[in-house]
Computed example of a mutant assay.
Amino acid sequence: MTPEGFGDNFALFCLSRVLAGYGLLTAVLPQFVDRYQGHVAIQMLLLGLVFNVIGGASDSIWGLAAAAARNWFARSPQRLALVGATGGLAMIGLAVTVAAT
């Protein structure tokens, strides 16, 4: 991966986590905070940090797996043609399904 690509992906990751974080903080996290333990804000921040670390690790693993799969397919013109044909058949199948319903 090039440094420019890494920077773009990192920016996208940060922006998507910020948007998801607001929904998470307002909808999900309050039920995991124990106000009797004190430091509610710190509990919320820690839970938000854990969410972002897990999300970042998951996204990174999927990105690396996708890059490895793409490189494997790209090494063989036959495999690459098979992927293209499979994608085309999937699109045709989806179009027929949409037209039929």
Rank of each mutant, 00 (worst) to 15 (best):
D59C: 04
G63L: 07
D59T: 08
F51K: 01
A74R: 09
L12Q: 14
F10Y: 05
L15F: 15
L29V: 12
G5F: 05
A57H: 01
N71D: 10
I42R: 15
V96M: 00
A90C: 06
A67V: 15
F32K: 12
L12D: 09
G88S: 05
V33S: 15
V96R: 02
S60E: 01
S76Y: 11
L94R: 08
V18Q: 14
N9W: 00
V98R: 05
F32D: 14
A74H: 04
F6P: 05
L80G: 08
W62F: 04
D59W: 00
F51R: 08
A69Q: 07
G87R: 00
G5L: 12
H39E: 11
A67D: 12
A11L: 11
V50M: 09
M44F: 02
L19H: 11
L25M: 04
F13I: 12
A69Y: 03
L49Y: 03
R75G: 10
S60H: 01
W72E: 04
I61S: 01
D59V: 00
L89I: 13
Q31E: 13
R35S: 15
V98H: 00
G5C: 04
L25H: 00
G38R: 06
A68R: 07
G21A: 05
A95H: 05
S58G: 03
A27L: 14
L24S: 08
V28C: 14
Q43D: 10
V96A: 08
F32E: 15
N9L: 04
L15R: 15
T86N: 02
V83R: 03
I61W: 00
F73G: 02
P77K: 11
L47G: 08
G87W: 00
F73H: 06
V33N: 15
I92P: 09
R79A: 07
R75F: 04
